[in-house]
């Protein structure tokens, strides 16, 4: 085997060190970039589709209908799983030692909640509903990680409502 010494040093010493030290940083940066992009796209969609989705004004948490007539109704339910990236989790753990605002969670949870409502409205629109009554949003932590050490947890948002068909 004619492997040169510098190559061995690079492969077995430099690469692991670089990976170990820069993985959280790169994951944090990638996650921040990706999630901000998702959030931006969502805001654009809300602006574009908010006007076209006909039920946009009739999303309510009331259970009784205020002066509306209905032919029939249907149950709508949409869920989405979101989670911060591994690097963001690591830095949030560090931040958690001091307390304070966790910006990464702010962004990703806000994204999930808005996205699930947008999807609910899309589903209602596809089914031909003219109003959405009794909207409920539930939040739960789902962690499918088999081992407890790497607890990669994600947050599930479930929105369910009754769609009114007129």
């Amino acid at each position: 085997m004619a492997t040169s010494a510098p190559l061995v040093i690079v492969l077995y010493i430099v690469v692991p060190i670089v990976t170990i030290f820069f993985f959280p940083v790169s994951s944090w940066a990638l996650g921040r970039w990706y999630q901000n992009r998702l959030h931006g796209a969502l805001l654009e969609n809300e602006k574009l589709e908010g006007a076209t989705l006909q039920d946009s004004n009739y999303l309510s948490t009331f259970s009784e209908m205020n002066g509306m007539s209905a032919q029939s109704s249907t149950l709508l339910h949409v869920s989405i799983c979101v989670g911060p990236s591994i690097g963001q989790m690591f830095f949030m753990w560090v931040k958690g030692l001091f307390g304070g605002r966790l910006h990464s969670y702010d962004v990703v949870l806000d994204y999930g909640r808005r996205e699930v409502l947008l999807r609910l409205r899309r589903q209602a629109n596809d089914l031909g509903c003219t109003a959405i009554q009794n909207v409920r949003i539930e939040t739960s932590v789902v962690s499918f990680a088999k081992n407890n050490k790497s607890r990669q947890s994600s947050v599930e948002f479930l929105a369910f409502a009754t769609g009114i068909l007129q």
């Binding site: 994951s27 990638l30 996650g31 990706y34 999630q35 998702l38 339910h77 869920s79 989405i80 799983c81 979101v82 989670g83 911060p84 990236s85 591994i86 690097g87 963001q88 990464s104 990703v108 994204y111 999930g112 996205e115 789902v142 499918f144 990669q152 994600s154 599930e156 479930l158």
Partner: peptide, 18 residues
Amino acid sequence: NIVGGELKAYTELLNESR
């Protein structure tokens, strides 16, 4: 999980189980 955001595999799984 390296980038985070929506985890489509979980979303689909939970939807079909629901």
